[in-house]
Nucleic acid binder design. Sequence first.
DNA 1: TCATAATTGTGAAGATTATAACAAACTTTC
DNA 2: GAAAGTTTGTTATAATCTTCACAATTATGA
Lengths: 212, 212
Amino acid sequence: MREKKRIPLISVERLIIYRRCLLKLKQAAIAKISSNSLGKLTNITAVNIRKDLSYIGETGKPGFGYQVKELIVHIEKFMGMDHIHKVVLIGMGNIGASLLNYQNWQIRGFEIVGAFDKDKRKVNRVINGVKIQNCRRLQNFLKKHSISIAILAIPAGETQKKVNELAEFGVKGFYIISPIIVNVPKDCFVEYLDMISPLEFLMFRIKKNILK
Amino acid sequence: MREKKRIPLISVERLIIYRRCLLKLKQAAIAKISSNSLGKLTNITAVNIRKDLSYIGETGKPGFGYQVKELIVHIEKFMGMDHIHKVVLIGMGNIGASLLNYQNWQIRGFEIVGAFDKDKRKVNRVINGVKIQNCRRLQNFLKKHSISIAILAIPAGETQKKVNELAEFGVKGFYIISPIIVNVPKDCFVEYLDMISPLEFLMFRIKKNILK
DNA sequence: TCATAATTGTGAAGATTATAACAAACTTTC
DNA sequence: GAAAGTTTGTTATAATCTTCACAATTATGA
Ligand SMILES: NC(=O)c1ccc[n+]([C@@H]2O[C@H](COP(=O)([O-])OP(=O)(O)OC[C@H]3O[C@@H](n4cnc5c(N)ncnc54)[C@H](O)[C@@H]3O)[C@@H](O)[C@H]2O)c1
Ligand SMILES: NC(=O)c1ccc[n+]([C@@H]2O[C@H](COP(=O)([O-])OP(=O)(O)OC[C@H]3O[C@@H](n4cnc5c(N)ncnc54)[C@H](O)[C@@H]3O)[C@@H](O)[C@H]2O)c1
């Protein structure tokens, strides 16, 4: 038999959407769903969904569909969401504070265990039960709690510097909330969030009348 | 001659990145750049960049590269960023307030001209020079300023309802800042921002050691 | 129980996107 | 001003991703 191809990353991105949607179904006490119905809820074609799910192993029953709870577990297992991952948050301005106030971290698989800022006026303030710390404590904190993921919500101009520093402290994953692209050491991983570009993209689609 | 193919939307997403990067270069008084250097700055291959740019017409000079300022103008023209687009912001919680406090709207091509919340305690408060209004005023406001784009930063459960309402008021573009997928009328456009999924995706890549 | 309907999983085909290869155009250097 | 070096734009090729088509499996209902 030919070797099974690795799942495309774009399928993984959709798995995240499926899971998000399935969690809502579970909450609504809906026990089963077909690829067709899930497609209606996510605006993804049914066959695309089935193909995506086929990468993570058989999960459905012909003539029936998918057990919602089972499928959630299956996706989580595949994605390595076997436990709550601890992360630190750097930069407690508008976005940093918002993220710290976010109420659904657990369900998404994360916990913010440390919040840091370089501004002394913000240090020691408590947001949503987490005390903001001085950045000087970062190195020790990361070591003590063996954290390897950081969310950076600081000005774009500060970001590369901070990434370098954190990489030295052993951070392997960076989630950058700034409109900037950074360089990371070869064994590190980085993802970006530019909150404005989807709006620019939307504008373009409206102007050119591209409904997708 | 064969008809020129329409630009792929994925190329448009990259155009947005190029522009963002070029604006920084311009600010740093850098006048020219090659596809190669731009590739280093954006982590996109040079040939991919040239291909993307070829969709919007010839813009570079062989043996030289691109004029930064020219290229910015060219991209903006192509994308229809010929003026500042006015948008309204619905939901003045953590994210809504952050967005209203964002300092670079103009450079990204937008202006938030109205902010709305249903919570009476928030109404009439002023953030960054914009007074928060009661949602009841939405319809008139949209009409008066002929706004057709709304950013929704309200709880996921409220979003579909609000979209329906806004669509009736003539809004054509929706930027949804919630982990939810909505239905819009056929002639409407929607883009999403889920702030957490990139982090889930990052986690997956770390676990499976996928450096991209 | 058997026919009919629903639904999955997947190989093959089709569509889209990225990369390679290279001629043409421009710059720099001697 | 000719030769060498850059860099673009584009065609051809390769890789990736989506959709089609359909056999296989399960549920439903007469
Ligand atoms: N606010 C928005 O809606 C919005 C929208 C789009 C993009 N962004 C981007 O998100 C990022 C954060 O935005 P924001 O509005 O929260 O900014 P902000 O200015 O409100 O907060 C930045 C925080 O980072 C802290 N900081 C700065 N340098 C630091 C360092 N080296 N180490 C630790 N902390 C440091 C500051 O003290 C401040 O508290 C920025 O890059 C911004 O461009 C924000
Ligand atoms: N805060 C975060 O970091 C974060 C992270 C990920 C996702 N999100 C999502 O972003 C959205 C907004 O998050 P937030 O933290 O700003 O929420 P929030 O609760 O702080 O703010 C929501 C605001 O919307 C207002 N509102 C509610 N219903 C409304 C309606 N029908 N019309 C007008 N206003 C209404 C509320 O009064 C409130 O001011 C949510 O869907 C949330 O899940 C937030």
